[in-house]
């Protein structure tokens, strides 16, 4: 079998490889491109027979019309603000707990850790309604707190941080103690700098999750002033049910800036994601 492969002309095999990759990449990118194209078509061009592939005249007005009917800036602010706080919270809580589980011995440690592991498998829907009730008891329905606080601790995050922190040598911590460092200082000055890649991983992961979250904001938010981007897109679906071009423009506005950010930061994003598969 391997003989056959070698007997194939090397260049043909290479060409095939690039062809497959390019074909796949085309499939990946095309929906985004088509969304952009449709977003500058007229409503008539979208329904044209036979179909047209490009607008005769790009309708950038679609975007100004969109800006008039939905508060894009507000949606972005809400998504950024809430996702940012969730990321900070998860990083802080996970690294603290992960540190304790990895580097301290205390009664109840194993029990608590196994409990946390067990909760990782629970479908989110099991907790959805009760959490809604708790948030209501706290008077946080339709607030930023209600959206953010239930997401501030993550079982997965604690697990991931513990896995990374176990590899930090005890000698380092002991040396710091001899130098008179307090335990919080050890956490902050020694351990945190050492697990920065893991924090980046967890942060990336949490950010994508929080940024794209839909069901929880849908339940907990009522006021349009607090809506996040996915809720904005959801409103567009009914607002522009008959205007596919505007719907595409709205979706593009919600999606493209995030994609650009990703392209700039892709090195960190992808490195972070790749780590989860190895440590998880």
């Amino acid at each position: 079998m391997s003989k056959d492969e070698h007997s194939l002309p090397q260049s043909a095999a290479r060409a095939l490889k690039y062809l497959v990759l390019a074909g796949g990449a085309f499939l990946m990118v095309f929906p985004f491109v088509w969304m952009m194209i449709a977003s500058v078509m007229t409503a008539g061009e979208i329904q044209m027979r036979p179909p047209v592939w490009l607008p005769a005249q790009p309708q950038f007005d679609n975007y100004s019309e969109l800006a008039r009917s939905i508060p894009i800036g507000r949606l972005y602010f809400n998504s950024l603000f809430t996702s940012g706080i969730i990321v900070l919270g998860v990083l802080l809580s996970s690294s603290l707990a992960g540190f304790a589980f990895a580097k301290y011995r205390f009664p109840g440690r194993e029990l608590l850790f196994y409990l946390i592991l067990a909760t990782m498998m629970i479908p989110f829907f099991v907790t959805l309604i009760p959490v809604f009730f708790i948030v209501r008891q706290l008077g946080w329905i339709d607030t930023y707190q209600g959206l953010v606080v239930p997401g501030l601790a993550s079982a997965y995050g604690i697990f991931l941080m513990r896995q990374f922190m176990v590899t930090v040598p005890d000698e380092l911590l002991d040396a710091a103690r001899i130098d008179g460092a307090s335990e919080p200082m050890i956490y902050w000055r020694i351990v945190i700098p050492l697990v920065k890649p893991a924090l980046a991983t967890l942060g990336t992961f949490t950010f994508i999750g929080a940024w794209n979250n839909f069901l929880w904001p849908l339940l907990v938010l009522n006021s349009r002033e607090l809506f996040t981007l996915p809720l904005g897109i959801n409103s567009l679906r009914s607002l522009y049910a008959d205007n596919t071009n505007l719907l595409m423009a709205g979706t593009a506005v919600a999606v493209v800036p995030m994609l650009l950010l990703f392209v700039f930061l892709q090195r960190y994003f992808i490195k972070g994601i790749a780590l989860t598969g190895l440590k998880g």
Binding site: F132, F133, R136, I141, L219, N222
Partner: peptide, 15 residues
């Protein structure tokens, strides 16, 4: 699509 759910959840939420 969300009106009924909002009336119910708003009620339970006391808002």
């Amino acid at each position: 699509g969300e009106l009924r759910a909002k009336i119910i959840t708003g009620r339970t939420a006391g808002i």
